[in-house]
Design a protein around this nucleic acid. Sequence first.
DNA 1: TTTCTTTATCGTAATATTGCAATATAACAA
DNA 2: TTGTTATATTGCAATATTACGATAAAGAAA
Lengths: 109, 109
Amino acid sequence: MGLPKTEIFNDQQNKIALWAKVFGHPARVAIIQHLFRINSCVCGDLVEEIGLAQPTISQHLKELKILGLIQGTVEGTSVCYCINPEKWNEMKSEIMDFLDQDISALDCC
Amino acid sequence: MGLPKTEIFNDQQNKIALWAKVFGHPARVAIIQHLFRINSCVCGDLVEEIGLAQPTISQHLKELKILGLIQGTVEGTSVCYCINPEKWNEMKSEIMDFLDQDISALDCC
DNA sequence: TTTCTTTATCGTAATATTGCAATATAACAA
DNA sequence: TTGTTATATTGCAATATTACGATAAAGAAA
């Protein structure tokens, strides 16, 4: 035990859970916010910006990269990261579909 | 180690991470979807509906309850769960604020 | 009362996540 | 070549999460 039983859920449910999980840590939220704020790619300053050790940041970047939300471009010695707009919009619309259900008609106890 | 360093992030970042984390498991996504689909409260049938053991469902319900997204009303021997519309909308707008940033202007490498 | 039904809690095993020191890698500079 | 800089990977310790059997709690039914 200890592993989620993904096989008993449908693709949509598993996908939403995967998107949500990657935002389930404030460091990854902060990384995304920083990429939006500077409005371009970022090389190197994330370690100082976020305040975690370099290997830790690298690991969080990897998780965002695996889902395709960010992409890295090698620029000489450093790597520039930026948001992948297509993936971001794909994720956004899937999350919205889940969140944006009509709640006004709820007939509750 | 092993514990997230929440103190180095701001309240908004931590809150988004908390909301996201609760949806980071497909069982909790499925529970919410079921509550929306039947459009009323649900007593008892979640265990058969989801397909996990009763203590496991109870635990997932508790996590949704802690964040206030669902509420339980005791009905005799059973407990009826339903979505809390106010909390749902609060969560939704906070997540939307995070997701709904302008990506068209991104000047990337 | 006793029994049944329903949900919550406890305890525990298995796995996942977080964080970082140490080290590896890769490109540039001298 | 050697050194420097920036990022990735490895390895490991600490904590968190997931899942469920056993059991508790509480109201309903007999």
